[in-house]
């Protein structure tokens, strides 16, 4: 077991090294530089630009720039090109904003997707099955921001829910109870919207996995033994159908960073996706690179966790 995990970690470290090189090359070789973002600024004289280039090591060869980046990353000295703030602090602040959104939407996704998927599988061919399948296809086919606009108009008019931002301005002095209620109230629409696509995707997966299991021999055996139907479905069926979702749990961790750019823009939510978008637009190389690096670390950790969990849970997999 220990050897298995160490081997996996070693392979992932090698992969991470190549990912960091690839990201670094893409960001640096592509045209556009931080010193050129604001060419119309009359205060930028050529010597200022040269000073910027020197400060950011932009005239050094690529491998030297890569080494500088890795050195700063390792020592935690990395600073943003844009405002000279420490990169880790910036990312951590935004991460704290993204986390509640991610947790709430994951919670809604898992709470809704499982009952819907299991019911659709059990009542195969019923109206419920057809409706839920069609709805889930429709939900993954609609552009996220278009659906968000429709929902915003509807929800704001009917329930008076705030649609943008993470808190109400001017509530900073109130008690923590009101502040946290305000935060949760602001989470309503973004959390729901971020969850909808997940529900659509996961419920179809639950359905097909459940269908697969319901056709197995051991289900027939369980029925033939005369077990009550609930025990057959939830103890023998669902437990086995749950296996693939352990993998899914690991793969959902990276959703924390990628894929949230659109929603965070629509809802004006100062999260990680937004930070990455702004950094890309401002050619803020350290922030862009570090975010990509963290995203890769999350992906690799996610797959590692899911592989280990899978090996632990499913005895058929040999280590």
């Amino acid at each position: 077991m220990k050897e298995f995990i160490l081997k996996k970690i070693g392979a992932r470290l090698v992969l991470l090294f190549f990912v960091s090189i690839l990201c670094h090359s893409i960001v640096h070789i592509a045209p556009g530089e931080p010193s050129l973002v604001d060419p119309s600024n009359p205060r930028m004289k050529p010597e200022d630009i040269q000073r910027l280039r020197d400060a950011f090591h932009l005239d050094d060869p690529l491998y030297a720039q890569y080494l500088y980046w890795i050195r700063d990353l390792a020592t935690g000295e990395l600073r943003s090109f844009k405002d000279n703030q420490p990169v880790f602090q910036k990312i951590w602040d935004r991460f704290l904003n993204s986390l509640p959104l991610f947790l709430i939407s994951t919670f809604i996704t898992w709470c809704l997707a499982f009952p819907v998927g299991v019911q659709a599988a059990l009542r195969r061919g019923s109206v419920f099955d057809h409706t839920s399948t069609f709805l889930s296809y429709a939900l993954i086919s609609i552009p996220g921001f278009f659906l968000s606009y429709i929902v915003i108009i509807f929800m704001v008019k009917t329930f008076n829910v705030p649609a943008t931002g993470i808190r109400t301005f001017g509530l900073e002095d109130s008690s923590w109870l009101f502040q946290s209620m305000d935060r949760i109230w602001h989470l309503t629409i973004p959390g729901l919207m971020a969850a909808l696509a997940g529900v659509a995707w996961l419920s179809r997966f639950v359905k097909s996995s459940m269908l697969e299991v319901l056709h197995q021999d051991y289900i027939r055996t369980a029925r033939a033994k005369g077990l009550p139907e609930d025990a057959v479905i939830y103890k023998h069926g669902l437990r086995n159908a749950l296996l693939p979702f352990i993998t899914m749990f690991g793969l959902m961790i990276p959703g924390l960073i990628g894929g949230s750019v659109i929603f965070e823009t629509v809802f004006n939510w100062p999260g990680i996706g937004r930070l990455g978008y702004d950094a890309i637009m401002a050619r803020d190389f350290p922030v862009t690179l570090t975010l990509n690096f963290f995203a890769a670390v999350l992906v690799l950790t996610g797959t590692l966790v899911s592989e280990i969990l899978y090996a632990v849970v499913d005895p058929r997999i040999k280590l």
Partner: peptide
């Protein structure tokens, strides 16, 4: 390696 990089971020960049 390609699967490690978040696709939409890469496209954006």
């Amino acid at each position: 390696i390609m699967l490690c990089i978040p696709t939409f971020f890469l496209i954006l960049a």
